[in-house]
Amino acid sequence: MIKYANTRVAFIDSLAELADKNPKIVLVCSDSSKVIRADGFKAAFPDRFIDVGIAEQNAVACAAGLASCGLIPVVATYAGFITMRACEQVRTFVAYPFLNVKMVGANGGIGAGEREGVTHQFFEDLGILRTIPGITIVVPADASQVSKAVEAVVNVPGPVYLRIGSGRDPVVLDSDLPFELGKIRHLQVFGDDVAILANGHTIPRALAAAKRLYNSGIKAAVVEVHTLRPLDTEGIVAILEKTGAAVTVEDHNIIGGLGSAIAEVIAEKVPVPLARVGLRDLFPESGEAEKLMDAYGLSVDDICNACRQVLARKEGRSA
């Protein structure tokens, strides 16, 4: 049975706790207060809650203005409305002046957008932001990781993007685990046949695939890559030097996100076979999260097959 916990509530509760101690934190919404469950924050800090209405470009540019005066604005709404609707404001007025604006994007991935359909499923956010210099990019695994990641990113200077989910998000990790910004985490190491690099709510699938592979004699190492920038290149090179084969798993287009980031490291530092599991450059449809991910290339079988394929390439045979 999958357990669920709400990443949106985890975010806002953590932010409220931080705001209680830090008078510089300001929450900026674009009619997204219900989306991110901000009623409690609004009641506790009415002077530090700004809602500009359904106007994301204005929300981001206004946050940039706030940050230029020493405040720490946190813009929170759906992932695509920040990274696409307000993309230029993010790039030119937040990232270019390296302002201390924190951006929190909900519905990251098709599993989080699920039944809403393509307009509210965001699987390009990470790729878009990875091409803009200077933005720290974080994809926490689950609600307890979001709580810790919020504290970590508020204390990091400059622009940050934090991806959260639907509000019905699988519990992925032991809630006692810390969050260390910019570091990969070895989640389960059966051996060094192949590395499975995953993040966010795809992690349970990566772990299930590793277990299934183990039962068929393939020993995988499952590694969480929650920070796409700064990328833990050293840690990634170290694990890939051991395994000599890599599979990435992400709820994102295979172009631009984790798969691309790992491909860049592989091409420049440690040439090993790679297969990318994720959305295969297409638009999905509405559906229940788990079924949708199964249908669009993120099933446990898809991950196992990708692992077998890279193993065959590593060993110089056809899969």
Partner: peptide, 11 residues
């Protein structure tokens, strides 16, 4: 829009 943010920051 930026000016709005700076003006709100004064408050």
């Amino acid at each position: 829009s930026v000016g709005l943010g700076i003006a709100l920051a004064a408050r």
